[in-house]
Design a protein around this nucleic acid. Structure first.
Lengths: 87, 87
DNA sequence: ATTAATTTGTTCGTATGTATC
DNA sequence: TGATACATACGAACAAATTAA
């Protein structure tokens, strides 16, 4: 039995589940940030990188990032990258 | 002779019987879920798919699903699909 | 100074779900 | 029954800015 919640972020996208892929990716990235994969004001992987890593379309990846921005988890610098928000 | 109850769910809709088609479909789907065709939190076939598979109108299919929701067998996620309920 | 590579920004088209009328 | 709306996902193309060679 896993030690995370029923719909918690795993590391794989589930297309047949009730949670949309873009929300799954957002949860995954948020979890990785909390876990400390990237520190505050450090860049998370680029959009093409996330596309490759999770097998999603870029438009979907961008939707995830938009969600994370709205939640104050990350911020985007145009033509530069997406960075972990923080104190 | 079949090994299910007298009016139990078959895999075909009987239009001449006493049970309404939408209740038949609901029973069929419930049986398929019990049988393990789809696990908990997995999507069941889409409405258009069920329309095609069972030769029913979409409104009828939706009525079946509503019944299954009321019975706690499945739950619907708007703009996403219908999923098997489960602990 | 040029060029190429990288990264986000934008738009279009197609497909599939459910929701609604 | 049929049509339309809304949300989502994929794919592709191009623009704009930055950075590195």
């Amino acid at each position: 039995m896993a030690h995370h919640s029923e719909f918690g972020p795993d590391d794989e996208i589930d297309y047949d589940g009730p949670v949309t892929p873009y929300r799954q990716l957002a949860a995954i990235l948020a979890a990785r940030i909390r876990r400390g994969d990237w520190a505050a004001h450090r860049a998370i992987p680029s959009e093409p990188r996330l596309v490759q890593e999770y097998g999603l379309a870029r438009s979907t990846v961008r939707r995830s990032i938009r969600l994370l921005v709205e939640d104050g988890v990350v911020y985007v610098v145009p033509q530069r990258g997406t960075f972990v928000a923080g104190g």
